Amino acid sequence: MTDLLDSNPQRSSAGVRGRRTLVSSRRAKGSNRWIVWLGRAGILAVFLVGWSLLPVNEALRARWPVFDEFFLSSPGAVVEEFQRLLIGNELDFWVNFWFTVKGASLGLVVGLACSVTMALVLTSSRLLRSALTPIMDLVNAIPTVALIPVIVLMFGSTLETSVVIAALSVFFFTVFNAYAGGASMPKDLANNAAMLGASRAELMWKLRVRYVLAWTIQILPGAIGHALASAFAAELFSGSPGLGRLVMQAILSINSDLVFATVTVIAVLGVFLTMMGSAFSARYLHWFTKSR
């Protein structure tokens, strides 16, 4: 009987067509990936060529002095400054680099922990939700940058300032999404757990926390960007150790090469950390979706 089914010409032809479709779709995806990367490389090449040519255009510099190489720098000068920073460790580059990474990382962890805890509290207690939500909306309306002077007065120009600013930024960026995740837990699931004898604490920490974490991790890449940007801004305005202070020193000394080199480091670091956050988010959400 199996041989008869396998020998069915219609079934065999359908299987062949399915395999051909699968192979062609994989090839199309591979070619599209190459096209995307070639497009990105082309955009980068055009940008670098334009950046190299603008400062040497006499007519353009005469009309708009901002395009002078003194202000705009050039890719070659930035690469040389980059080498001095990385290899020569000028201006204690690596010390400042790790201060920024540490401040952003600690702020991210503290902000996410507070966000998840607050979301669990708000979704588990109607009384606390009614009391705290207006206060959170009010504080959220204040720009995080505006709080830097207050934090500096409290902690001084220290690593703690960067951590607190980054934590506040991450907290208000993620807490409302985390709250929506906690509120999305099916009521039937909560009712069934309660019927089986689950307490409110068990309902919170064994069931609802999964939804809060999933919705929080969904925006983890954005939270990483907020943590890094906030730590950098805190260093820039407070003078605490880090890449932000390095940029401020470059601005005060009118060193455009150092400014662009440091900003490039921040950009590369941000892309790398965001890619790591995206990979972790995709991995976790994959397992969360399968386990539901």
Rank of each mutant, 00 (worst) to 15 (best):
residue 140 N to R: 13
residue 156 G to S: 03
residue 146 A to T: 08
residue 142 I to L: 09
residue 131 A to H: 09
residue 135 I to P: 11
residue 127 L to W: 13
residue 149 P to I: 10
residue 131 A to Y: 05
residue 133 T to E: 00
residue 130 S to F: 11
residue 149 P to T: 11
residue 153 L to A: 10
residue 130 S to G: 12
residue 157 S to F: 13
residue 152 V to S: 06
residue 132 L to K: 01
residue 134 P to N: 00
residue 148 I to N: 11
residue 131 A to W: 06
residue 142 I to W: 07
residue 136 M to G: 03
residue 134 P to V: 00
residue 131 A to E: 03
residue 126 R to S: 15
residue 149 P to A: 14
residue 150 V to T: 13
residue 143 P to V: 04
residue 158 T to A: 13
residue 144 T to I: 12
residue 129 R to T: 01
residue 152 V to R: 05
residue 139 V to I: 02
residue 143 P to G: 01
residue 147 L to K: 05
residue 125 S to H: 13
residue 142 I to F: 12
residue 132 L to M: 06
residue 128 L to V: 07
residue 152 V to K: 10
residue 143 P to Y: 03
residue 142 I to D: 11
residue 148 I to S: 08
residue 141 A to L: 11
residue 133 T to P: 00
residue 129 R to S: 12
residue 132 L to C: 00
residue 128 L to I: 02
residue 158 T to I: 14
residue 134 P to D: 06
residue 147 L to Q: 11
residue 128 L to M: 09
residue 144 T to C: 03
residue 128 L to W: 03
residue 136 M to F: 08
residue 153 L to E: 01
residue 138 L to F: 01
residue 156 G to K: 12
residue 141 A to V: 07
residue 126 R to P: 15
residue 158 T to Y: 12
residue 130 S to K: 09
residue 133 T to K: 00
residue 132 L to D: 00
residue 138 L to V: 06
residue 125 S to F: 11
residue 153 L to S: 12
residue 141 A to N: 07
residue 141 A to C: 14
residue 151 I to L: 06
residue 134 P to F: 01
residue 150 V to F: 13
residue 127 L to I: 15
residue 156 G to I: 05
residue 130 S to Y: 11
residue 148 I to T: 04
residue 125 S to T: 09
residue 128 L to A: 05
residue 143 P to C: 07
residue 151 I to S: 10
residue 140 N to C: 04
residue 146 A to N: 01
residue 133 T to I: 01
residue 125 S to L: 07
residue 131 A to N: 01
residue 128 L to K: 02
residue 153 L to Y: 03
residue 152 V to H: 04
residue 129 R to W: 05
residue 157 S to Q: 09
residue 146 A to F: 02
residue 127 L to C: 14
residue 130 S to M: 07
residue 127 L to H: 14
residue 128 L to F: 10
residue 135 I to M: 02
residue 126 R to V: 08
residue 138 L to R: 03
residue 154 M to N: 14
residue 153 L to C: 12
residue 147 L to E: 12
residue 133 T to V: 01
residue 128 L to R: 04
residue 125 S to Q: 07
residue 126 R to D: 15
residue 147 L to G: 11
residue 138 L to W: 01
residue 157 S to Y: 00
residue 129 R to D: 01
residue 133 T to H: 04
residue 150 V to A: 09
residue 145 V to D: 01
residue 142 I to Q: 04
residue 149 P to W: 13
residue 136 M to I: 02
residue 144 T to W: 10
residue 148 I to F: 07
residue 146 A to M: 03
residue 140 N to I: 10
residue 151 I to Y: 14
residue 132 L to I: 05
residue 133 T to A: 00
